[in-house]
Computed example of a mutant assay.
Amino acid sequence: MSERWLSVEEIAAYLGVSKDTIYAWISKKSMPARRIGRFWKFKADEIDEWVHSGGAAEKDGQGKAT
């Protein structure tokens, strides 16, 4: 049986971030997502690979305290 598609709410909870962060990552960081009608859907294994490859990482020098 194949893995089910996750919603924005579910993937945000899975990663521990807000829905707004998910939408920003889709547009700015090429987060792997599929548009199905008006909804975004995700596969957890694709998201895991994206995170492990540094897709969600801050750019050098950004977000660090000085």
Rank of each mutant, 00 (worst) to 15 (best):
V17K: 00
K28H: 15
A33C: 11
S27H: 13
A44T: 06
G16I: 03
E9D: 07
D48C: 03
S30L: 08
G61L: 14
W40Y: 15
I22F: 00
I36L: 14
I47D: 11
I26P: 08
E46G: 08
A24M: 02
L6G: 00
D45V: 00
K29S: 15
L15K: 03
G63R: 09
M31H: 07
K19M: 07
R38Q: 13
E3S: 13
S27K: 12
I22P: 13
Q62N: 12
P32Q: 10
Y14M: 02
E46Y: 01
K28P: 05
I11H: 05
K43G: 06
S2L: 08
Q62Y: 13
Y23W: 07
M1S: 09
T66I: 11
D48V: 09
G16Q: 05
E9P: 03
R4H: 04
V8C: 01
I36D: 08
H52G: 02
D45M: 01
A13R: 01
I47P: 00
A24H: 06
S18H: 05
E58N: 09
A56Q: 03
A12P: 09
S30G: 04
E10F: 00
K43T: 07
S7D: 05
G55T: 07
I11E: 01
K59I: 11
G55V: 04
L6A: 11
G54N: 04
S18A: 15
S7C: 00
E58K: 10
A56D: 08
M1E: 10
P32V: 04
I36M: 13
L15Q: 11
G37A: 09
G63E: 04
F39G: 06
K28D: 15
G61R: 09
K64G: 06
A33L: 05
K19G: 15
W25N: 13
P32N: 14
T21V: 14
A33V: 11
R35D: 03
S2H: 09
A65V: 09
W5C: 02
A44W: 02
I22M: 04
P32Y: 12
Y23L: 15
